[in-house]
Nucleic acid binder design. Sequence first.
DNA 1: ATCGCTGCAAACGGTTTGCAGGACA
DNA 2: TGTCCTGCAAACCGTTTGCAGCGAT
Lengths: 166, 166
Amino acid sequence: MKAVETGPPLGCAAVMLGVFRAALQEQHQPVTQQREAIAQALFESGRHLSAEDIVEKLREGGESVGKATVYRTLNLLVQVGLAVEHDFDEGFRRYEMSAGPSRHDHLICTSCGVVVEFQRSEVDDLMGEIAEAHGFHVLTRQVKLYGLCPTCDEAADADLTRAGLR
Amino acid sequence: MKAVETGPPLGCAAVMLGVFRAALQEQHQPVTQQREAIAQALFESGRHLSAEDIVEKLREGGESVGKATVYRTLNLLVQVGLAVEHDFDEGFRRYEMSAGPSRHDHLICTSCGVVVEFQRSEVDDLMGEIAEAHGFHVLTRQVKLYGLCPTCDEAADADLTRAGLR
DNA sequence: ATCGCTGCAAACGGTTTGCAGGACA
DNA sequence: TGTCCTGCAAACCGTTTGCAGCGAT
């Protein structure tokens, strides 16, 4: 078995790429090498990538794409629903493959910056109910919990204790 | 009874201002006219204001403050927990008075941009439970539902119907 | 009187845009 | 072959920063 860097099921990227190609053709938009490369980079990583991350990833792979094209393609991916935009308060945006109906949300540590994903059907249910109650037709959501991860929380506690004992 | 532009209970701004002053003094930070004016502008409006909004609001009131000071003071307010930062994907940030424990969340229309607030104790409960399950010490959260408001949803439906009948 | 906040303007950095040339349909 | 996507670089814009001077403590 081959070692793989990161997460998504093998073959998933290929399927997503097919969907992307189909979506482009349906809108009479050209399927260019750059668009495929950018989409593939995002799908293969399966994580939260910045535009810069993608430029770098592709450069490492020997492909050269302009930053502007990366932004344009990412917007395209968001439009057709194959990617979602995230803002983790870093001063720039990150993008992530959107596996359609599989919704998940994030816990973000404001101290060390670690991002933990979680998935709870109760969130889907509750948000759906709220949207309905307000007559909104919700397409996407951003549920982010900011605070201290267990490690940083413990460290902060230790600091406080030390200060208290001083 | 006097006509009032916007929302928060009268006197609320004054109380919040007092808390801000106390917080500054506690940290041995000077209570300047600018800081008071900026905080008051935010507290009185009670809505989601951008830094630019505040500069304008103060200029209208005859007070002149630098944009840099507005940003610095807003960060100060966030640090002491009297304001929260919002990002509604407009390319800039908005700030809102934080009434401490009274948490509320937002529905955002991606078509007309209207922002609707809602408050549901179930959200507090669920988020608290999730944070606990992951050992996170959550301080703030961002729960945003993006989609079409009733008006825009209806308009979109009408468009689709028209297209279908063409 | 001292410390550090303010304000102006320039710097900064992520994102967008204009335009000449080349790739897809 | 025509359209429009790409890539470079400059423009853009919200935010941050450096520095001289004044205000709060």
